[in-house]
Design a protein around this nucleic acid. Structure first.
Lengths: 105, 105
DNA sequence: CTACCATATCGACAATCATCGATATGAGGA
DNA sequence: TCCTCATATCGATGATTGTCGATATGGTAG
C-alpha cells in the first residue's frame, strides 16, 4: 500500500537526476527518438532505457512505439500534474498560524 | 564545479522523500519548532536533523534559531524558485518541432 | 527463414542515501 | 560552575539508485 506522500515522492524522483533533467531539456524541443537522445548524452543505451522508464512511470513523459523505434515526448498532462502537486505541497495552508514559541518551553 | 542540471536535481531532492514531504505538510500550517516536527514523525532526532538540513540547503525551508530551539518554516522565495524551475524544465520550448520520423531511419 | 537493428531487461557493482545510536555543541537554569 | 535540554554532527549499516556490459525481445529487410 502506498501513501500519498510516497506517490508524490516518486513523481519528483523524475527530476532528481541530472541526466533525466538533460533528457527533459531535449524533449522540450519536441518529440525525440531514443537514438537521438542517446547520441546527445554520455550514457550507455541500457542506462538511457532505465531513465526513460522512470520518466514514463512518473507520467512526465509519454512513449510512442513505432516499428523498431520509440519516440518520447513531454506529457502536458503529466507535467501539469507535477506542477500542481508541487504548488500544493509548498503553498501555506489557509489556516496558517505562527506559534512563535515552542510549546515545550 | 556544478552544472545547472546538478543544481536543479539537488533542489528537487527536497521533494523525493516521503518524510520530507510530511515535514513540508506540517510547515504549511506555519512555523514549527523542531521538537514539534519530531513528535509528529516516526523518525529519530538525528534523522530529522538530516532531513531539515537537506530542506534548508535546497532553499525551500528556512531556519530561525532562538536560544536552544530551532524554528523552521516554508521559504516563500525558495518555494517559488522551485516552482519556477519545474515550470521551466517541463514547458515545451517556443521553437518546439516534431520530427515524427527518426533521422536514423 | 535469417540477419540485423533499436530498444528493453538482467545481473553485477559502486555510489548515494535514509536511518540509527552515540557523542558533541551550545544555550539556559540551578 | 555544573547539569540539563534541544539540536547538530559523527560513524556505521542496510536499502536504494545509477551505471555498465551482456543478453533478450521484437520489428524489418533481404
Amino acid at each position: 500500500m502506498d501513501t500519498t506522500n510516497q506517490v508524490y515522492a516518486r513523481i519528483f524522483k523524475a527530476f532528481c537526476d541530472e541526466n533525466r533533467i538533460a533528457i527533459l531539456g531535449l524533449l522540450r524541443d519536441g518529440e525525440k527518438c531514443a537514438c537521438v537522445l542517446l547520441e546527445n548524452l554520455n550514457i550507455a543505451q541500457s542506462t538511457l532505457s532505465h531513465h526513460m522508464k522512470i520518466l514514463c512511470e512518473s507520467g512526465v513523459v509519454t512513449c510512442r512505439a513505432e516499428g523498431k523505434w520509440s519516440y518520447y515526448s513531454l506529457s502536458g498532462q503529466g507535467c501539469e500534474r507535477a506542477r500542481t502537486i508541487l504548488a500544493d505541497i509548498t503553498r501555506p495552508s489557509s489556516t496558517e498560524t505562527s506559534s512563535k514559541v515552542c510549546p515545550c518551553k
